[in-house]
């Protein structure tokens, strides 16, 4: 909870234009990312355990295959909004993309 609050504060205070998200120790880093519409995010799995990037919406709009160690997955966000996603293998792993 403290991690999430901390990340929110950073994103709110200084909206990042960074477009890379890593997965380390079952955590999306950063757990929340703010990007401009049209930006592409690339996720990279740094764990020895596979993970997915799965839209939490029903039905999911984006859903990566299982990413093995150092595998990448990219998605382009063209429509402003807030997108919640998770790892469909370890659903306690959750992240958010805010598109402005």
């Amino acid at each position: 909870m403290r991690h999430i609050a901390f990340a929110c504060f950073l994103a709110w205070a200084t909206p990042t234009l960074a477009e890379d998200v890593s997965i380390d120790n079952f955590v999306f880093k950063p757990v929340e990312i703010t990007i401009k519409a049209g930006s592409t995010i690339t996720w990279t799995n740094r764990d020895d355990i596979p993970h997915t990037i799965t839209d939490a919406a029903h039905p999911p709009v984006f859903h990566s295959p299982a990413l093995d160690t150092d595998d990448h997955f990219s998605a382009t966000f063209t429509t402003p909004g807030t997108y919640h996603y998770f790892c469909s293998l370890h659903p306690h792993m959750q992240g958010t993309v805010i598109v402005r």
């Binding site: 799965t54 939490a56 919640h84 996603y85 998770f86 469909s88 293998l89 659903p91 306690h92 959750q94």
Partner: peptide, 12 residues
Amino acid sequence: LNNVQGLQAGGL
């Protein structure tokens, strides 16, 4: 039993 599919965000 199969309890590994259809997992929901934040869930078990």
